[in-house]
Amino acid sequence: MPASARKLAVLPAAPVAPAPNSLPVSRPTMPRAEQVLPYLQAMDAAGWYSNFGPLLMQFEARLQARFSDGAQVVTAGNATLAIGLALKAMGLQPGARVAIPAWTFVATAHAVLWAGYRPWLIDVDPATSMLDPLATESALADAPGPVDAVIPVMAHGAPIDLDAWVLFQARTGVKVLIDAAAAFDVLDRGPLPAVVSLHATKALGVGEGGFFVSRDPVLNEAVRRMTGFGFMGDRVATIASTNAKLSEYAAAVGLAALDGWPGVRERYMRVAQRLRLALMGRPDAAFQPGWGLTWVSSVCVVDLPAGSAATLADTLAEAGVATRRWWGEGCHREPAFAEYERAAVPVTDALARSQLGVPFYSTMSDAEVDHLASSLSQALDRL
């Protein structure tokens, strides 16, 4: 390396002064070290650190107890892996076409490709930002070929009509897997297989992790086998698989997170309700139906005047308020998926220009909520 290049390489970056009243778009809520410690001590006492140890079994049992219909839980290293493994376990044809919403996080499409299938990106309903079962059924007639499965996404953790999707599956024969990555708070039944994320940014997080849930014991066993080299209580690899287990360390964090979940949920709801009240007079800043009233997640997504998201993001940044377009321009705009089939997606395109993630976290102070509401109102007035 030339001397000049070496000299440039060690020059410190120019300091960037933080904006006044800076508000981050998110702050993860994770258990504190002292809350996790008793579980770590139990792990050390058992001498079991991975491979479906006692803490993981306890964690899965407590997650499973949240489901009112006897659905079973299988943990995995992350939700993207869990979606891919679930698709594999569902017995789709090699190279099968899987319908997914264009309006979703890229992990949904990545999981389909990782599992060896082809995503077909289709449009969502403007009222819910999610796939509609009747509209999806109609879209099948115009599909570029047979569709073996569909992955409805619970947008930013919002409730979904599970029973309507059960009927869709019965009518069409197309298998349904629910991407419930952000929906830990609301998903409490398992009539259809679903995957929940336990990433640190989610309402209940372990750092990296996820879980699969369903009432189908055969499917549950297949997913479990796939998380551990194809083993199932022995050392015989019965199927080609991978290593997607959740460790005892992650389970320790998860157990501590479950201990604190009622209080964390209450704080999320309090912050959400204060923000709703602060923006009550702004019909041009609409929240997802029921958000902060009957359900909550770790993010706040606001519907804004058509096409205004980018402008408002810039204006809010000037006020020190960070924002995030959580799903970018939509999966169909991502270079990684450019070659894959898609339907016309005008609703997705409109949502990408009109929805914006704004600061929201369980530890948000009243002053921070008020600053956000005031800054957003002023930014809207400037449109």
Rank of each mutant, 00 (worst) to 15 (best):
V218L: 13
L219S: 05
L219E: 01
L219G: 07
L219V: 07
N220I: 14
E221I: 04
A222Y: 03
R224A: 14
R224D: 07
G228S: 12
F229E: 10
F229G: 01
F229N: 13
F229H: 14
F231W: 15
F231T: 07
G233K: 04
G233T: 06
D234N: 15
R235E: 12
R235A: 11
V236I: 12
V236M: 04
A237H: 13
T238R: 15
S241W: 00
S241M: 07
S241N: 10
T242M: 13
N243G: 11
K245R: 15
K245G: 01
L246C: 06
S247A: 12
E248L: 03
A250M: 07
A250R: 02
L258H: 05
Y268N: 07
R270P: 00
A272R: 02
R274S: 10
R276Q: 13
L277I: 05
L279S: 12
L279G: 08
M280C: 03
R282Y: 13
A285R: 01
A286E: 15
Q288T: 09
G290Y: 15
G292A: 14
W295I: 08
V296H: 12
V296N: 10
S297V: 14
C300R: 04
C300T: 02
L304D: 06
P305A: 03
P305W: 05
G307M: 03
G307R: 01
S308R: 00
A309Q: 04
A309K: 05
L312K: 06
A313F: 05
T315Y: 02
T315V: 12
T315N: 02
T315C: 03
L316M: 13
A319Y: 12
G320L: 15
A322L: 06
R325W: 00
E329S: 08
E329A: 13
G330K: 00
G330F: 03
